[in-house]
Design a protein around this nucleic acid. Structure first.
Lengths: 154, 154
DNA sequence: TTACAATAGTTAGAGCTCTAATGTTCGTCA
DNA sequence: TGACGAACATTAGAGCTCTAACTATTGTAA
């Protein structure tokens, strides 16, 4: 008995597409020795120097422990540096090193190539439609499943 | 310097949507003590009893070692059983146990609820459009990055 | 001052995912 | 019979991801 045929599930198609994109980016970033997650972190980091790990996690839509893992690897490879905040003792400011900027730039060229090639497959109208439809998916799914079931104080 | 603004990247939107869907399914499957990957494996397994792990990996679009990991956990939980093929000594036939069928049925109800709710957010026309656009993403990305760069014999 | 909430950071543990490499079996072909 | 390629299964190792804890700091309110 089949409850719902797979081809009818939007999820199947969404997953396949995301998987294919992720694989393509992974291959594109390989020469720069970057993973997709590392690239995403570096990219946001370059746009918000000194951002905290928690804020970076939010920007990348992952949990703090996940970002912690990614940052640990980036730091071990010398791509970022983390320095204590001047007076906010609980915050570690994260910044790209020179090497980090270089590697990001290298990876970015390849990653953007993939994005451009993909975008070129669609007309501007189609891109708009796709983005809008995906946005509605995300909005619905997030509203149906709140990040934090806010509990009242009393 | 920003090479390509994030909102212009189809990848950003695709990733967000897939992430939201995955999170929703994960939450839906939690009561059945199933992960999204385990659910996908069980679902394909129920439709192709006795399938080999390699074939199952292809169906779920993951690599054999990945499927191996998933199957190991499913087996430890008693949801599947793997028996040597009658005369193909190198193949392990994988099948759902009774418990596996029960748990799958339980999880399936919840997972399909998510799919139906998501589908209900769109008109039939919109669903068709979204699926078609996603299909073109997948097709392009896979063609641009062949699974196996076929090498000629001579 | 003390208590509490919010935020930041971290560790532990489970699970998924990949690439690379190994070993086995099957079928084909010389 | 023997060699070889294709397919299956597995292990090793690196990395990502989550939930569930725990600690520390900051700021606010009793």
């Amino acid at each position: 008995m089949t409850s719902m045929p797979l081809p009818e599930r939007l999820g199947s198609h969404l997953k396949r597409a995301e998987q294919a994109l992720s694989a393509a980016k992974q291959a594109a970033l390989k020469p720069a020795h970057l993973t997709v997650s590392q690239y995403a972190a570096l990219l946001h980091l370059s746009q918000s120097p000194g951002i905290s790990a928690a804020a970076l996690a939010r920007a990348c839509a992952v949990t703090p422990p996940t970002m912690n893992t990614v940052l640990k690897n980036l730091q071990e490879n010398g791509l970022i540096e983390r320095t204590p905040h001047e007076w906010h003792k609980n915050i570690l400011e994260t910044r790209l090193t020179e090497k980090g900027e270089r590697v990001l730039a290298e990876g970015d060229v390849r990653a953007v190539e993939v994005e451009r090639a993909l975008a070129a497959e669609f007309s501007p109208q189609e891109r708009e439609t796709l983005i809008a439809l995906l946005g509605r998916c995300t909005a619905f799914l997030q509203s149906a499943r709140p990040t934090e079931p806010r509990r009242r104080p009393g």
